[in-house]
Design a protein around this nucleic acid. Sequence first.
DNA 1: GAAATCACTATCCATGGGGTACCTATATAT
DNA 2: ATATATAGGTACCCCATGGATAGTGATTTC
Lengths: 132, 132
Amino acid sequence: MDSDFDSCFGYDAYRRTCPSHTVLEMLASKWVYLVVCALRKGRLRNGELARKLEGITPKMLTQTLRVLERDGLVRREVFPVIPPRVEYELTELGQNLAGLLSQIRSWAEQHAPDIKDARARAIADSEGDWAA
Amino acid sequence: MDSDFDSCFGYDAYRRTCPSHTVLEMLASKWVYLVVCALRKGRLRNGELARKLEGITPKMLTQTLRVLERDGLVRREVFPVIPPRVEYELTELGQNLAGLLSQIRSWAEQHAPDIKDARARAIADSEGDWAA
DNA sequence: GAAATCACTATCCATGGGGTACCTATATAT
DNA sequence: ATATATAGGTACCCCATGGATAGTGATTTC
């Protein structure tokens, strides 16, 4: 197993029309990564998420949470109080995914220096072209 | 370990200015996922990739490969023949990442039915609102 | 009574993702 | 000799989306 094959379960993410392709499209978002990772350790309120995810705008936060809720990865609970209180938590499916996304985030943090170096080298190389 | 902590290695992907944040941003692309996964089993030519990734346009393929090359995940080899021959393969860093991305793709294929159902339910629920 | 909290919603703007057409040079087909 | 195909791109345009800013309603705080 371990995804040695390109496609399992009868679905093929390489195919435009395959449902798994649209799932991959949904996951391919910086904010989806970060929101799911942030919720991994427990339920959080909108404001708590906003403070944790530096630079996210209210619009993007709500938009991302709505998509995750629609796709069954996040559960939204509203408390009918004033001022309003809304909490978000991962569903079982969401927790399942969060493990993988956390590994990606961890990989990004671990290899950020390598990639920074690669980018610097790419720029240096391209600047050597000026006298071609 | 195993990313039980939110940030390791002194990098924090939640911070806008952290290099790991820009790495996550780069990875948050449908075509990056698919190109890296496609190269996992060996080097491929531009045309082979184009045929494998249904629906990718030449521009997006080239753009994606250039980004991956810039970031040190893909190596590009040009053979000076006519007609031109160019091959792409993962670097060691790229192969390292490909394992994780393949797991995500595999997860997407495995859970596509669940998410399809969740979306159908979301639509059904919202359509029940018309008489609210 | 002015400001802040809280969870949004609405509106605007700009970036860039994505599509189409085109390019170079050769081999093959007609 | 002309047309087509291959191969790996580049140049140009469009619009959808990401992202910034401002507003909403009710309540507690200073």
